[in-house]
Computed example of a mutant assay.
Amino acid sequence: MIAGLVTVSREQILAITEDVFAAMIDGGSEVLVTERHEPVPAPVEPLCAWVDMTVAELGLGVRTIVRTERPAADQLTRALLMMAASEAVGQEDLVDAFGELANVVGGNVKSLLAAPAVLSLPSVAQTAPELPENQFLQDIALDWRGHVLVVSLWSLV
């Protein structure tokens, strides 16, 4: 049943992230986030933000996870909060900004689901909660200003 609920393609995830980054992060119409075709390096300082979309009447859901490294998350936070490049990023600002990025990407994914869903508040941690491999739906690796991000979708059953 989850396959009928989620028909979000990699191209749609790319379009969502391009639009979100152009509007919220990069301040214009220039597309600075692109699909990454090289292997994703193992994270050294991982950071994940995620939101869950739940279709209560079906008992199903989808999790959108945005994963990157701490330096990229710091730069994203500075851009989103319009901070100076040299300004230190505090933990509260990091959680708010990186969580908001996952919230907006997830909200756009939610609009593509085949049934109405409720969006959770975002969560931010070094790693996202483990899910069984058979619940993996889709992912795309992205490059942004020399940083790597991965957006992935998982089923919640």
Rank of each mutant, 00 (worst) to 15 (best):
M1T: 09
M1N: 10
M1I: 09
M1H: 11
G4H: 06
L5G: 07
L5T: 10
L5E: 09
L5K: 13
V6L: 12
R10V: 07
L14Q: 02
E18D: 10
E18C: 11
D19M: 11
V20Q: 04
A23G: 09
M24D: 07
S29T: 13
E30P: 00
L32C: 04
L32Y: 01
T34S: 12
T34A: 12
P39Q: 13
P39R: 13
P39E: 14
P41F: 14
A42M: 08
A42Y: 00
P43C: 12
P43S: 10
L47R: 00
C48Y: 01
C48N: 01
C48W: 02
W50G: 02
W50M: 05
W50L: 05
D52R: 07
M53F: 01
G59P: 07
G61Q: 03
R63N: 01
I65Y: 01
V66C: 07
R67G: 00
E69M: 04
R70A: 04
A72F: 04
A73Q: 06
T77H: 05
M82E: 14
M83P: 03
A88Y: 11
V89T: 06
D93E: 15
L94Y: 00
L94V: 02
V95R: 07
E100T: 10
A102I: 10
V105D: 05
N108F: 12
V109N: 06
V109R: 04
S111F: 08
P116L: 07
S120Y: 09
L121F: 15
P122N: 10
S123D: 15
V124S: 04
P129Q: 08
E130L: 15
N134F: 12
I140A: 08
L142G: 04
L142V: 06
R145D: 09
H147T: 01
L149V: 01
L153N: 06
S155W: 05
L156N: 05
